[in-house]
Design a protein around this nucleic acid. Structure first.
Length: 303
DNA sequence: AAATGGACCTGGTGGC
DNA sequence: TGCCACCAGGTCCATT
């Protein structure tokens, strides 16, 4: 039942009592991970911590550096980056890469494959094991003595978060680069949080061709794209929150999350707005899907 | 400045 | 069934 080119959204999902966080690393998924992890660990004491694969941790990988004996004060996010902050300031930077995921295991649940770091936390409702698993290991865990240091070393180069950037600032930033607008959206220094899926989805929602030179978008269209990004991310967070928990079996009904995609993974299928076949190509080194009819660009004849 | 291509890794999929 | 090429949500680097 899969359409050609359809992405594998189901990820790795199993039944079980534990809270499962599927590895899916764009802003809405990272935000979903943040909320779920925060709900479990904020206020909890870290009884022990351990790096199973030393190289996955950047910086000191001692139990203390990994927050052992600390109490988790907050779990924060900027773009696709996470920070887990203890009440004495010790902080972990967490990046999920392509396949990374934080998971809260149910009691007795076996350690998932590709687990590189594990924590034992004492929550109000008892002990929980939290693990970081990442098959491809593009992600990582960074250790810092303070959140300020984390911010300086890990977040300083990131642009404003895509969820909270004002439209005017977004338009200003787009106006400063002549790259294809899709390349601009993927540049985390310009805007933090948008990845390949949401770049395509937002561009379609705004009616902007991915190859349109960024600085040549009108102010109105740039602002419109900014609104489209927020609209798309907000919807994805809402849908992601429900999809992560509720297992959908791979042969049956699609989750709300996948169903929400207008273009990503739908190359060759009809545009949901105008019915024409969606096109695909490579822009900025990434597979890109767009509607040559709905998305106005600099070169609509080849679109 | 920006485009391209490769590297980093593993696993799933589809073709033969 | 097996083997193999290809592809994947993200960065990071070297080269043009």
């Amino acid at each position: 039942m899969r359409r050609p080119g359809r992405s594998r959204y189901t990820g790795r999902t199993r039944t079980g009592a534990g809270v499962r966080l599927r590895p899916m690393p764009e802003l809405p998924e990272v935000e979903t991970v943040r909320r779920m992890i925060a709900g479990v660990v904020v206020g909890a004491r870290v009884a022990s911590a351990r790096a199973i694969r030393r190289a996955y941790v950047i910086g000191s990988a001692t139990p203390r550096a990994l927050l052992a004996d600390g109490v988790i004060e907050s779990v924060r996010r900027h773009g696709k980056q996470l920070a887990i902050v203890a009440d004495d300031g010790r902080s972990l930077g967490v990046h999920l890469g392509m396949t990374g995921g934080l998971r809260v295991l149910a009691p007795g649940e076996p350690t998932p494959g590709h687990t590189h770091v594990e924590w034992d936390v004492e929550t109000d409702s008892g002990h929980r094991r939290v693990v970081m698993a990442d098959a491809r290991r593009f992600g990582g865990v960074w250790t810092f003595a303070s959140f300020e240091e984390l911010r300086r070393r890990r977040w300083a180069t990131l642009g404003p978060d895509a969820l909270s950037i004002p439209d005017d600032e977004f338009a200003d930033r787009l106006g400063r680069t002549r790259r294809a607008v899709k390349a601009a959206l993927l540049d985390q220094r310009l805007l933090a949080g948008v990845g390949n899926i949401y770049a395509d989805e937002s561009l379609h929602a705004a009616g902007v061709h991915p190859g349109h030179p960024s600085a040549r978008l009108s102010r109105a269209r740039a602002r419109r794209l900014g609104r489209a990004i927020r609209w798309t991310l907000d919807r994805a967070i809402a849908a992601g929150g429900s999809t992560v928990r509720d297992y959908r079996d791979p042969t049956g009904v699609e989750g709300a999350f996948a169903a929400a995609h207008a273009v990503y993974g739908r190359a060759g299928a009809p545009c949901l707005r105008c019915g024409r076949r969606l096109r695909s190509g490579v822009i900025s080194g990434r597979t890109t899907v767009w509607c040559g009819s709905c998305q106005r660009g600099p070169d609509s004849r080849r679109a």
